[in-house]
Computed example of a mutant assay.
Amino acid sequence: MTHHETDDEMIHCAGCGVKLQLDDPGKLGYVPEQALLKEPVICQRCYRIKHYNDASAITLNQDDFLRLLGHIGSTKSLVVNIVDIFDFEGSMISGLARFVGGNPVLLVVNKIDLLPKVTNLNRIVNWVQKQAKQLGLKIVDVVLCSAKRNLGFDRVIEAIGEHRDGCDVYVVGATNVGKSMLINRLIADFSDLEAELTTSQYPGTTLDIVKIPLDDGKSIIDTPGIVYKHRLTELVPKRDLARIMPDRTIKPLVFQLNEQQTLFFGGLARFDFVKGERQSFTCYIASGLKVHRTKLERADELYAEHLGELLTPPRKEDAGELPPLTKHAISIPKGGKHDVLISGLGWIKLNSEAGAQLVVHAPKGVKVIARDALI
């Protein structure tokens, strides 16, 4: 800091009270050095909220987040949980049901514009409701939207109005689900912009939250995004994010595979069709990611020789940064349509109901699951 290191007001933000730090712009309390000369000293996040209406995505760890959620259970409020349809299971907050108490949960499913145009949206709503129920969540409503394309947003605003019942509204979500876009829309739609946005701290944490005052004296409360290390999007270098996060409608890729064939998704993941009758598999992934097909017996060798060249991302210089690939053996039963999701990368749909023995290789810690087909 400076020679004022010991002065309490020097090391805490005058806006939200969070401890100030100069090292990491991605973490809470970051302040650029030149801002220390200003009076009062406020962190970059408070500055942005105040001047640009930008509730920027600052993240926090699981423990702080769970403490914050625990607090919501003791209030009477509506919880708006924003999830990403492209990574539904990866972006769901694990254990949310335990923490929200008796409060209603409105599930806002973002990035719906990524799904192919022919998708039946009612079916998607039913699918989401079914998945939420399996997770033990009591959902009052599911709203599909695209913050980016501004689709379905009026319905989000309407649903919040319908279900909030004169209470505060807490907005929760993982990182990269489009939460800040939504918050900015809420600020524009719900709050008199003359009203001062306030940042305040939760008791017992160094955690700042943004309160958007509503006309009836209640607030919309934005909580920082939670980082889930089980999503590939949190592990790849920032510059490769654009290649794995789709920004437009996904064009599904279909592969006819015989058993003992393998698909590589760049060098980030590998899908082995170990045993089963010849069938087709549809890959729902970003168009920036190249898929390579090979024989299972050649897969190890191909990976060892071509990681970072033919198989990218990761680039050669980043190859050591990612956790090593680990195996997930998945047995898909006969009957019913199934997907295999690799969190943050997309999913592979099995088009046959003949069943299959699969092995999926993904960086250690990344969530890989089989589920009922989304589409």
Rank of each mutant, 00 (worst) to 15 (best):
Q261A: 03
Q261I: 05
L263D: 02
L263Y: 03
L263E: 01
L263K: 01
F264L: 04
F265H: 00
F265R: 01
G266T: 04
G266F: 01
G267S: 04
G267N: 10
L268V: 07
L268D: 07
A269P: 00
R270T: 04
D272F: 07
D272I: 03
D272A: 11
D272L: 06
F273T: 01
F273R: 04
V274I: 15
V274L: 15
K275W: 01
G276A: 10
G276E: 03
G276N: 06
E277M: 15
E277S: 14
E277G: 15
R278K: 15
R278C: 11
R278M: 13
R278A: 15
S280C: 13
F281P: 06
T282R: 13
T282I: 13
T282D: 10
C283M: 15
C283P: 09
Y284T: 02
Y284I: 06
Y284G: 01
Y284M: 09
I285Y: 06
I285H: 13
I285Q: 12
I285A: 14
A286Y: 04
S287H: 10
S287A: 13
S287N: 14
S287W: 02
G288S: 04
G288C: 08
K290L: 08
K290A: 14
K290T: 11
V291Y: 05
V291R: 04
V291M: 05
R293V: 06
R293E: 11
R293M: 11
R293L: 13
T294I: 07
K295F: 10
K295L: 12
L296N: 13
L296Y: 05
L296K: 11
R298T: 05
R298F: 07
R298H: 09
